[in-house]
């Protein structure tokens, strides 16, 4: 369904280009060797876009959860820590954070850092504040009776969270987590500014060589579009699967 629409969109774009003389699709024409090589070059950025986004989302979920749990504590200092973290991290623009982690952090710590890990750290940190808010809302939406039942069979705090509360909370927040993943895929393009060889960087490099920004960036847009449609479909599939789990 989505793919039919997508194919339609591509055809429409190509049709429009036929009408104006300004387009030069030869740069990415898979039927000629040079175009095919260019296309392969553009697509080769996919590896790092995916690796970067998925590594960052996993880390940001872990940090997010670790920051969300104190928010639910009876201890005021712990709740305060959560608020301060969320407010601070949320206030820093991602691009600024990327630059700061890549250029600033090595100076501060004396450790050198690769472009990849600078990107992962910046993306994960910046996203973790949002993950923390999502987890907090999800966990808070679970009925008090579930905690009491878990206590009554004397589960430890860790077991209660692992086997009772989080599985239910995650089912509820899955759509929101999916949104964050999509957001992460898009934000990973910003890591191109420090030289990460992902989709956007590849496109920029090709544009410099070929002077065909219109066609190359159109391909770039389509790359992100397809990627994100596939990821969204995956998230929806997971959602349906987990839901049917509960109803059998």
């Amino acid at each position: 369904m989505t793919f039919c629409r997508l194919a339609g969109l591509c055809c429409l774009t190509l049709l429009l280009t036929g009408c104006s003389g300004n387009w030069g699709w030869y740069v990415v024409d898979p039927t000629v060797p040079a175009g095919w090589n260019n296309l392969k070059f553009l697509l080769s950025g996919l590896y790092y876009t995916l690796l970067l986004s998925f590594t960052a989302i996993v880390i940001s979920i872990v940090i997010g959860l670790a920051v969300a749990l104190p928010a639910l504590s009876a201890n005021r200092a712990l709740r305060r820590f959560n608020r301060v973290y969320v407010e601070l991290v949320r206030a820093v623009p991602i691009l600024v954070l990327i630059l700061w982690v890549y250029y600033g952090l090595p100076q501060m710590t004396g450790l050198s850092i690769t472009v990849f890990w600078a990107g992962v750290i910046a993306l994960a940190l910046s996203d973790s504040a949002f993950e923390a808010e999502i987890f907090r809302a999800g966990i808070q939406s679970i009925d008090k009776g579930q905690y009491e039942a878990a206590h009554s069979i004397s589960l430890s705090y860790t077991d209660m969270m692992m086997y009772v509360i989080l599985p239910q909370a995650v089912r509820r927040i899955l759509p929101a987590l999916g949104n964050q993943l999509v957001y992460m895929l898009k934000m990973s393009s910003l890591v191109s500014v420090i030289g990460m060889q992902e989709l956007t960087r590849k496109a920029n490099e090709l544009v410099v060589v070929e002077y065909r920004p219109l066609e190359i960036y159109t391909v770039l847009v389509l790359e992100y579009l397809v990627l994100i449609l596939i990821v969204s479909a995956g998230v929806r599939w997971l959602e349906r699967k987990l839901q049917s789990d509960q109803r059998g």
Binding site: D143, G145, Q146, E148, A149, H151, S152, I153, S154, V164, P167, Q168, R171, D245, Q246
Partner: peptide
């Protein structure tokens, strides 16, 4: 709690 079982008005079974 290991020596006390409790049954609630709203059952409180784990739905998942």
């Amino acid at each position: 709690r290991s020596s006390v079982g409790m049954v609630f008005q709203q059952f409180n079974l784990f739905p998942h």
